[in-house]
Amino acid sequence: MSVLALLLALVFSCSALNAQSVTVIVDKSGSGNFTNVQQAIDWVPANNNRWIRIHVKAGTYTEKVTVPANKPYILLEGGSRARTIIQSSGHGSVVGTSTFTVSADNFVASRITFQNTYNKLILRDEDAVPDASMERAPAFMIYGDKASFYGCGFVSLQDTLSDMQGRHYFNRCYIEGAVDFIWGSGQSIYEGCAIYSRNAGTTNFITAQGRDSPNDNSGFVFKYCTVNGDDTTFLGRVYRAYSRVVFFKSTLGSHVAPRGWFAWNFKGQEDLTTYVEEGCSGPGAKKSKRVKWMKTLGPAKLIKLVSTRKYINTDRWIEAQPRPS
């Protein structure tokens, strides 16, 4: 029996549902089970119901990776976000261009940077390309429910982190971009994350959240985060009529635009949105020039959004997932 066949047998011999059953190694030098990440994903059995740890050794892996909907219960683990990088250069549209796409439920990633290198070509530095224009170039796209990320990096300029749908938890991650670089209709909490707005010669927006009805549970909550950058940035622009974003007890740097928020194509409908800043500090947290339609929530409504347990984790799915070692 081959080594991989033996590992596959171990997956199904594990008696406890959702127990971590096996670890496989990705090493581009050839000393692991696989030399690229997609090979490891392809090896995971369809409709898998056991946690499988895929450890990606230090290195830069240039590839597009897709986790299909029928491959849940994957823990993807790197050495550190500075040393383990997955990158590609897809651009021009959302579908099919992301470096890493997850459609499966129950996904965990830790200590890896997901990067789209296309937009690096137009930054104002030694690598700049004259007359190049910024395009959509997602680094990560998530459609699955119950996904958590620990110490990961997400780097591009436009549409960096495409938080499309489902419940997601981001802990101490680094997210970098310029335009709508955290966007979509996810129901997500970002806790202790560092957000950086890059100078790309355009008007910058951190979020473009896509809540489209008062009954839609989606929204982005940033708690205990830091916002910095090298260019002026709005905290968000209205991407759908009921867009919802909360910054809670976060530190906002001097590059945050005094108005804070931008109505975009929804001028006259701003009262439908839920844009909240509560308990924030730093030079960018001054509210004297903020838009008049920014909301203030009462304690009960606020806690329903900023509490991880109440907003995204009512069924304790985060505790049920394996934590990175």
Rank of each mutant, 00 (worst) to 15 (best):
165 Q>V: 10
165 Q>F: 04
140 F>D: 04
113 T>Y: 02
176 E>F: 09
202 T>G: 07
31 S>P: 13
9 A>M: 01
246 V>E: 13
91 H>R: 03
249 K>Y: 01
267 K>T: 09
227 V>M: 14
207 T>V: 06
44 V>K: 06
84 T>F: 07
142 I>Y: 02
148 S>Y: 13
201 G>Q: 09
174 Y>N: 15
170 F>M: 00
213 S>Q: 04
251 T>Q: 11
259 R>S: 05
2 S>R: 08
69 A>L: 13
88 S>D: 10
185 S>M: 02
282 G>I: 12
128 A>K: 10
176 E>V: 15
193 C>V: 10
236 G>Y: 00
217 N>Q: 12
11 V>E: 03
6 L>G: 14
11 V>W: 10
77 E>V: 13
191 E>T: 12
305 L>F: 15
281 S>T: 15
147 A>C: 14
135 E>K: 12
240 R>Q: 01
230 D>P: 08
94 V>A: 13
302 L>W: 04
257 A>Q: 06
217 N>P: 00
244 R>L: 11
154 F>E: 05
6 L>T: 09
317 W>M: 02
247 F>T: 14
204 N>Q: 04
209 Q>T: 05
155 V>F: 03
107 F>Y: 09
38 Q>N: 09
51 W>F: 05
108 V>I: 07
130 P>V: 14
43 W>R: 12
228 N>E: 15
125 D>F: 00
90 G>A: 12
119 N>H: 03
171 N>H: 15
223 K>S: 06
2 S>G: 02
195 I>R: 05
268 G>Y: 11
199 N>I: 11
167 R>V: 01
201 G>E: 07
251 T>R: 13
284 G>L: 04
